[in-house]
Amino acid sequence: MEYALSGDLRTNLMGFRKLVHLYDLVSQYEGSRLKLNFGKINFFDANMSAVLLAMLQKLESDNNNKIIIDYDQIDQNCEVLRRNGFVSHLSKTTEVVEDIRKSTVPLKTFKSTDADAFVSYIENDFLKHRGLDGHLSESAFGKIKDSFLEIFCNVELHSETNRPMYTCGQFYPTKQEFKFTVVDVGVGFLKNINKKDRAISTYEEAIDWAVKGNSTKKGTTQGGTGLSTILRYCRSSKGEIHIVSGDCYWRFNGKEIEKYSLNKYFCGATVHLIFRY
């Protein structure tokens, strides 16, 4: 089968819906060959490649589907996906990628045990990227770092998957915008939260619950305030945080919270953080 991604693929509801539509369709097949066409792509937010890679690797491992890509189409229409390492990951090559424009935070995968590598990535590749240099106070640097470390812990504890966490970012110097995405393909927000509070029965309610600073840590332990801290930062800086889990696209747009239906489901959880100056 062949599937064409087309138009703009941005860090928003429509962009996510396009990827979920692809995932939903292909996941109905097993042992198939999927030719993924990038020839009609007009624009691709590099950080969204974390979502796409997570989906494609899950389709390959869970459904034994073979993904075939014409990399020339990527070079012609969205070469940023070569610069950020997406092509290397998908083609399983050891190609050393250098982003000569230094506009991307490289696409990486981290197992739940890769604590030291994840810390180094957050401290150096993400928060010391030229796109954030001079824009974060020491306090904001520490709080954002701690928040992502808490999110990493939550994936270790709650995702119930051996698959890695996917991370990627992109800086737009002209627009003075910086986008960063983390993705896990575990069980998502609802399952564990519903166990904790039976009254919470939708993904929308579960995301609301998690953003309020609650956590489903095992045993008697609590904690995990990463999302509420990021929301607090976004409120003070007019940044955005988007959270996607199940069929819910939850977004703080810099002023208020919006919630949308994806119309389809995707496993795990995705968090986008958008900085604006």
Binding site: V119, C153, L157, K217, T220, Q222, G223
Partner: peptide, 18 residues
């Protein structure tokens, strides 16, 4: 220690308190 999360503290010190 260079980095410390609340999750770590709840699992270690918090649990020890009980």
């Amino acid at each position: 220690i260079r980095n410390l999360t609340s999750a770590f503290l709840h699992a270690s010190i918090g649990n020890l308190m009980t």
